[in-house]
Design a protein around this nucleic acid. Sequence first.
DNA 1: TCGCGAATGATAATTGTTCTCATTTGAGAA
DNA 2: TTCTCAAATGAGAACAATTATCATTCGCGA
Lengths: 142, 142
Amino acid sequence: MHKPENLKNAGLKSTLPRLKVLQLFETSKERHLSAEDVYKLLVSSGEVVSLATVYRVLTQFQQAGLLMQHHFESGKSVFELNSGEHHDHIVCLQCGHVEEFFDAAIEVRQEKAAVEHDFAIRDHALYIYADCTKKNCSRGSR
Amino acid sequence: MHKPENLKNAGLKSTLPRLKVLQLFETSKERHLSAEDVYKLLVSSGEVVSLATVYRVLTQFQQAGLLMQHHFESGKSVFELNSGEHHDHIVCLQCGHVEEFFDAAIEVRQEKAAVEHDFAIRDHALYIYADCTKKNCSRGSR
DNA sequence: TCGCGAATGATAATTGTTCTCATTTGAGAA
DNA sequence: TTCTCAAATGAGAACAATTATCATTCGCGA
Ligand SMILES: [Mn+2]
Ligand SMILES: [Mn+2]
Ligand SMILES: [Zn+2]
Ligand SMILES: [Zn+2]
């Protein structure tokens, strides 16, 4: 469970809070976590890390490329381990369940749209909001 | 400049603040406006409407289908007149300039992605973040 | 013209996030 | 090992965007 290497070669010194947050993302059942999610999960597992530090660490990890940050409509941003493979998201409006997908044709057409409008594309966010079909849906989480 | 009809058949009673906000969207040079934009534009044109009312009216208009609401990464949401024709957005990361585009192929593929994952699509948000090529770019607005 | 429920203004409260600063920590020097 | 000190953390204040509260005002039908 000790993985200072990951932090080291990301240019971040290995500290307890950072190791805890990184480990949480690597072991959590949920792949997409908000700062508050991270904070509460750590607290409820006995680990004590201040909320301010959680925010700082999440931002640092994102800048270091370890995490990806997304802005769902919920108002709070969520983070996930950077798999290196880009994907977009389908978010259930009822239960908050998130599915990931990738569509090469969409990616190509986005690039096309940017070029046609004389923009140099940097990034994009595609969120599909929908109703999922999970049997236990409709019980609002997130 | 008096158009109580629009409000009437949207199920909203015709009040001064509502008329002012609606008129602003119909005459503003900028198509996409945040609540603060609306508030400041009204104030600077001599009209007095409280910020709380601006927020309330924007929300009501959005629910009534008169306005569309978007959540750009800026942190504050922006509104625009609902043209009835869906489109997505390219946002300049430097100057905040916004271009609109529509790509039928993207729309089709989004629907496909939702269906494949057993979701009933409700809505979607596609924002392309990029650098525009306006000669007067780079002077941060919004 | 009246009356009353709906809308508004002023401002407090909330939410998510960032900042400040005193204290602690971890990685390398001695 | 122990020492040193810049970097990191914790606690809480500060912030920005938005929503809620509530006394006052307004629009519209009787
Ligand atoms: Mn994801
Ligand atoms: Mn638009
Ligand atoms: Zn669901
Ligand atoms: Zn620009």
